[in-house]
Amino acid sequence: MTTDLMIEMNSVHKWFGDLHVLNDVNLQVSKSEKIVICGPSGSGKSTLIRCINRLEEHQRGQIIVEGTELTNDSRSIERIRGEVGMVFQQFNLFPHLSILDNCTLAPIWVRKTPKAQAIDKAMQYLKRVQIDDQAFKYPSQLSGGQQQRAAIARALCMEPRIMLFDEPTSALDPEMIKEVLDVMVGLAEGGMTMIVVTHEMGFAKEVADKIIFMDEGQIVEAKSPDDFFNNPENERTKTFLSQIL
């Protein structure tokens, strides 16, 4: 089974100044596994997934992504970033580029894909998230939900083997949340390895193989959705669940 291990985190620690934001985090993610991370704000859930593609640097412990250990070696970081797609809360599309150019930028410059081929692939993914008719518009001309779907397509164009979602629906108006979640469900059904930080418990129930609850930098509870919602063990998990359900 070790060959199927996509991400391995062994007693990872991180501090922001004196603040201990990740405290002895251990996590294994296998191929096609879907993990949902939830927890109160400031619990370190975003930091955890941002460590996986080195947007944040961990200070102790070990993170291995697809057999490559994350170190300061910028080449291995860039390679891992190519394998790991990320979707942000604020979309972070490049406002000076059209939606299509947003999607082809990294394949052309990082993967060295020929332009025509990159465009073909981008249109394919844009169609999959149902905004291929917006390909030549600029991000500012799209609604929040459309922008987030474009951001997902942009990440997919690199054909990543792992997708990280950092609160992908938190900045969206309620009526747009569903269109983004639908895309994510489709992606999960296609067998993508996913780690999703979200408060959308409906999504977690439907999609997750494992739900992780974090508090104060620690993984407090890690269970299948059934167990997580029906038999939470930890007091903090219970309090959290009673607040959001």
Binding site: E78, R79, R81, V84, M86, N92, L105, A106, R154
Partner: peptide, 21 residues
């Protein structure tokens, strides 16, 4: 915005490409 740097890095662009593109 910091998000622009992060989005560029997350897609694997190197420093000079991130800056230039």
């Amino acid at each position: 915005p910091k998000g622009q740097y992060e989005a560029a890095q997350a897609t694997g662009l190197s420093y000079w490409r991130m800056m230039g593109l």
